[in-house]
Structure formats: structure tokens, C-alpha cells
Amino acid sequence: MREINKILTIAKFTFKEIIKSNILVNIFFLGLGLLLVTYVAYSFTYGEPARIALDFGLGTLSLSSVGIAIFIGSGILAKEIDSRTVYMIISRPVPRYCFILGKVMGLILVLIVNVLLLSTLTLSAYFFIGGEFAPILMWSILFILFEAIIALLVVSLLSLISSQTIAVILSMIVYVLGHAIDGVKLTSMIAKNKVLESIIDVYHFFLPGYYKLNLKEHVIYKQNIELDYLVNNTFYVLFYSLFLITLCVLTFNKKNLD
């Protein structure tokens, strides 16, 4: 019980520290930019302005969430060690896993705030232009949050085993690969080459399949999607996040904080 309180305390102050920095201002300006772009796109689009607004909105939401996850998440430990604040925390009766879990939880709260603010703006613009509500919209926003959480965990893990810059670069590469990998597998070059196919199978086993969380096409083109697909991918996120968190905790437990 005490450990849970410590995790929540670390999460609370991590959230507070980030929110009190300029991130909310950045999100606010991003939101304004989003509305402006939506308005411009709406004014120049013939036929389907709501669809364009949604396309821009979800795209911005996804990129900003992953951006925040990668850039702030990469400093989760590096900044703490540089400023020696990590020493102040783990010199108290706080197990190392509490520190990692608290930090990650605090950052997830920041991501939730970002998604809530920007999705509210996006949906407001979409409905204002005449878009119709569909449950898939909510799933899409939820999956964007999931995508950002996985990006956060990936960059946190990488920053524990490499430098902050390398962690950011690798996380971006993994993000792009994670979106492209499914399409690549369908190409004839891969289908004909068993070795490349097995490499992609190995990738699927260990690295995140971000493509599973991209529902934008389904939302914009109003394609049908099975509930099973959504539930299965939710479980995929849950288990993959647990896998990454476990790796983070094990790595941090062994890490020399010098």
C-alpha cells in the first residue's frame, strides 16, 4: 500500500512539474494552429470538408501525442540524473520500480491531458462543420493515446540503455517502422523472400506494431471495423505495455546511476 502511495506521489509531482512548464501553452498554440489549418482546409475543400477537418485533427493529435511522449519521455531519467534529483528520491525509502512507475504514470497523465484538449478541439471543429458522431471516433482517439503510451515506454526503455539523443532517434525509427511494417509485408519482394519474411516476423514479435493502432482510414472513410479487432488490439497494447514496463523496471534496477 505504501509503495502504491509512493508511485502516486511521484506521478503527481511529475505531472505537476511538466504541466507547470510551458507544455500547456505549447498545446494551446498547437490547438490554435490546428483550428486555423482546419479552417483553411475547410475553405478550400469542395465536397467533404468535415472529412478533411477530421483528417487534419486526428493527424495532429497523433503526431503531437507521440512527439510529447518521445521528447519528454527521453528525459525521464537523463534529466533526473543530470540535475541529481533522482538521488533525492531514491535516497528515501522508495524502491527503484516505484520511481520508474511513478514517472511513467505522471507522463501518461500529461499525454491524457494533451489528447483530451486536442481531441475536444478536433471534434468541435468536425461537428461544427457538420460531421456526424460515430463510436469509431472515440476508439480512434483512444488508440492515439495507446500509440503515444507505447512510444513513451519505448523511449523510456531506450533512454535507460543509451543516451537521450540516441533514444529519441531510435524511437522515431521504431515509430516509422511500426507503421510501415504491415504494408511492407504485403509487398511481393517480401512475400517471395523467406529470409526477409522471417525478419519481419521477428520484428512483429518484439517491436511495437503501431499500424494496429491506426484507425484514421477507417474513421475518415467510414469503413466498418469489427469490435473483436478493437478489443484484441486493446489487449495487445495492455500486454505490450506490461512487457515494456517490466523491461524498464528490470533495467533500472540494475542501472548504475552515476
Binding site: F13, E17, K20, Y87, M88, R92, P93, P95
Partner: peptide
């Protein structure tokens, strides 16, 4: 962990959370 309850530690040249 119990011992750390009774230890107070101050690192060298600390720079704490700037926004708190």
C-alpha cells in the same frame, strides 16, 4: 529500505525541479 528511512542525503550541487 528501512535504513533509508533514517538517512537524510543531500547530493553535490543539486538542481531540483525548476517548476515546483
Amino acid at each position: 529500505l528501512e535504513a533509508f528511512k533514517n538517512i537524510g542525503y543531500l547530493p553535490e550541487r543539486p538542481f531540483f525541479y525548476p517548476h515546483l
